[in-house]
Simulated scan of single mutants.
Amino acid sequence: MDEQRVGLLPISAGIWAPTGQTPLRPVQPRYEWLYIYAFVNPETGESRFWLIPALNKDAYQAVMAAFTESVDAGPDHHVLVVEDGGGFHVPAQQGHPSGIETVRLPPYSPELQPAERLWQLTDATIANRCFESLDALSEVLGQQCAWLETQLDLLSQYTLFHWWPLCQN
């Protein structure tokens, strides 16, 4: 599980241009943000994405509850969520929802987080573009995330590290 901030401040990515011509990128910096919360199973490529307007404890708890429901986690179906040490990763007062267990990665170690590699896939459709509003950005990003949820092999290729422990059922 990981989260990323995206917004109306354009993401710059490399682009091709004919020799001798300077590539042009639209820029209209504005500081409004949207957050992508992503969960991925590196072994199967199964994923869930949420676009949320905030990155805080309440949003984290709401997304974790929605994730729990979407994967039918409960007393008979446990799900292990690997997360970074974000200060907002605070479970509700009664703890994480039933069936959810978490493991925290060491601080400053994004290279250990499989979900961190999802951002190059979500950014692919929004890089070098200006959006008029967060709604327009959300529409394009929502379509990309919905498409990614159907690309199990692609997500597994991006997130299944050679050292990742495989499920032994």
Rank of each mutant, 00 (worst) to 15 (best):
M1F: 13
V6N: 05
L8F: 06
L8M: 06
S12W: 14
I15R: 15
W16Q: 11
T22A: 12
Q28Y: 09
Q28W: 10
Y31K: 04
Y31V: 03
Y31P: 02
E32A: 10
Y35I: 06
F39Y: 14
N41I: 10
G45P: 03
G45L: 07
S47I: 01
W50D: 11
L51T: 07
P53C: 03
N56F: 00
D58T: 09
A62I: 02
A65E: 08
A66M: 10
F67D: 03
T68W: 06
E69N: 10
S70Q: 02
G74Q: 07
V81R: 05
D84N: 02
D84A: 00
G86Q: 01
H89I: 11
Q94P: 01
G95C: 04
S98F: 11
S98I: 14
V103D: 12
P110Y: 01
E111N: 14
A115V: 09
L121P: 10
T125P: 12
T125H: 06
E132I: 09
E132A: 14
L134W: 00
L137D: 04
S138R: 13
E139L: 12
G142W: 15
Q144T: 08
C145I: 08
A146N: 06
L148A: 10
L148Q: 10
Q151R: 14
L155H: 04
L155Q: 08
S156K: 06
L160H: 01
F161V: 07
H162E: 11
P165W: 15
P165G: 09
